[in-house]
Amino acid sequence: MLEVNNLSLSFTQYQRGLKQKNIQVISDLSLSIQEGEILAVVGSSGSGKSLLAHAILGILPKNASLSGRLYYGGQELTAKRQKELRGKEIAFIPQSVNFLDPLMQIGQQVRTSSQVGSEKGIAKGKGGEKEKDRDRDREKGRVKDRAKDKGREKQRKIFDRYELDYDVENYYPFQISGGMARRVLVASAVVGGPKLIIADEPTPGLHHEVVKEALGHLRELADEGTAIMLITHDIATALEVADRIAVFYAGTIVEIAWASEFTDHGDKLRHPYTKALWMALPQNGFLPILGRQPSPSEPPPGCLFQPRCSLSSKSSSTNNSSCSQEAPVMRELRSGKVRCHFAT
């Protein structure tokens, strides 16, 4: 469905005067999502996961520079296709209610996506014919009305599905509760009939029940065949619902594992960071590891995880110092993927 190959992302920033600085945020990241699957991208807060979502949608700010390739449905996902597809085939679920326009009624905002699509369709279908202006205008108005009705109908169906009252249509974002906002955001993603949904931290600071409900919606959509990329910092949440977990570390993905492999002492996991992450959970011993994530702008030589890695320090005592010299490439391992010289 979606394939991301060797994606790198950096920003140019002006520092003091005209001196420019390149800030690397994502480096050499690869992943893929299948139809009907939830892939969770798990990483610590502020590590650039959201930007990965923005890159796929093509809504990065202007000073961003991107390299690598994106494929969607087997075809390359160019900027032009991104523009055509977003809001329709590729939908986005943002973090919070703040992403809704504070001065626009909910119903209208949910309808937006579907309307953008239909208006465009009308403009296309109308070309070429030379009718009398008045007739054409009337026709145009009627088609537009019909499109509007259709938009409303669609929106109401979605509202029914997510148990939102029709009254909510006329509410403004400041009038709805957190849980309701979640449903509204899911509803506005679904209204365009997407094949790929990118959900960016859809469950921050929510009550456990609400989180469960929101994740349930995602699972339901995936079971209907939608591909879902769930971006989160909460590995426990991710494990509840995702099929596969991609672990994000220092601007890249170090391992893609099956959710079912996160068991016991993490013996089935491939990368030492994933294992450490798993073991750091309260229920698994609450074991922290030393050090902190390097900035992708100033990576350590060799493997990104090498300074904190237990595997590397063990092996360097033997004859292999490749960890500090050579960055490992992503490789297949036991039906998952890993970026480590020593993983077995």
């Binding site: 923005h54 523009k83 977003r86 809001g87 943002p94 992403f99 699509g117 506005s188 365009g192």
Partner: peptide, 16 residues
């Protein structure tokens, strides 16, 4: 703002 980013993610652009 976030809501304009989101609007863009929903496929809106330009003058609309």
């Amino acid at each position: 703002s976030d809501y304009v980013l989101y609007a863009r993610a929903k496929g809106e652009y330009g003058f609309t």
